[in-house]
Nucleic acid binder design. Structure first.
Lengths: 146, 146
DNA sequence: CCTCCTGTAATTTTAAAATTTACACCATTA
DNA sequence: TAATGGTGTAAATTTTAAAATTACAGGAGG
């Protein structure tokens, strides 16, 4: 199972909110059009980001705005917010090894021990990239291509 | 989507083959019982490992044996063998962002640029652990628990 | 030549992710 | 104060990917 596309959509939304949040009323409908995802999916994502304090969403009247600086929003923070146990779901593990076999009995412990290290490494990697980097890259691509 | 459970099953099989491959005839049926996975799944996994030169499987009569030293088999090599494009499938990306929106038009480039770095980091992490480590851990757990 | 095994294609089942439908509730404004 | 255009969320449905199952051809060795 991979890290959900919801994280990619969340990044897309955050760039959009950063770029337009002050000028326009950024609604779930608008983000739905830009991302190509369903408005309900967007609302669920925004709801998580809001609970984590990353954005504010005006209830009733609508519209999302950024609530903290780009440097404070790492990819790790986004993933963790959207999908709290994404790291432990990184590796699939077969659920029914035989308890009668010494290897079957211990394989979960063995795998988890090494997988934990890999998860920690991935965690560091995800923490090293922030929305600041992504917005900078976005501006680079905008200039370059258009 | 996560990294397939087939990788965990492959590691299970390799420990089994290392421990018993010389003494017993390790068949897909036997590995199926130990892992709790289907014999056909096992045969597909063994078939990949065989093509990569990690193990040998006796055709006709049956039985798998290790073909190289434990140190040479990294988790990366196993994953890559079982699921060649697992790294690029690590992050899901929404497939239909709007080409009419500047962000929608560039989001794939932006995401891939950062995701590539993360994939490289993960790659390094996966290369840092070998079957030697996993077998050592296994022996540790065996002693400890039984 | 019979038995036990591998290799692999094709189908079915299962499980997870995403979408859709539905509706209660809030703010603004005409 | 009622209409409009939003949010928040639950529940059902659809879609998609992974895994299991079924099926069978073919090799090795007693």
């Amino acid at each position: 199972m991979h890290i959900s596309t919801k994280c990619s959509v969340a990044i897309h939304c955050l760039i959009f909110i950063y770029e337009y949040g002050e000028k326009k009323k950024v609604t779930s409908e608008l983000l739905s059009l830009s991302t190509g995802s369903n408005p309900v999916t967007i609302r669920n994502i925004l709801s998580s980001l809001k609970k984590n304090g990353i954005i504010s969403v005006k209830f009733g009247t609508g519209g999302a705005t950024l609530n903290c600086s780009l440097e404070e929003i790492t990819i790790y923070r986004i993933c963790k917010t959207i999908e709290p146990d994404f790291l432990s779901k990184l590796f699939g593990i077969h659920s029914l090894p035989s308890p009668l076999c010494p290897i079957g009995k211990n394989i979960h412990s063995v795998l988890n021990y090494s997988y934990q290290k890999i998860q920690n490494d991935l965690c560091d990697s995800l923490k090293s990239i922030t929305m600041k980097d992504l917005v900078t890259d976005y501006h680079y691509f905008i200039q370059d291509i258009n």
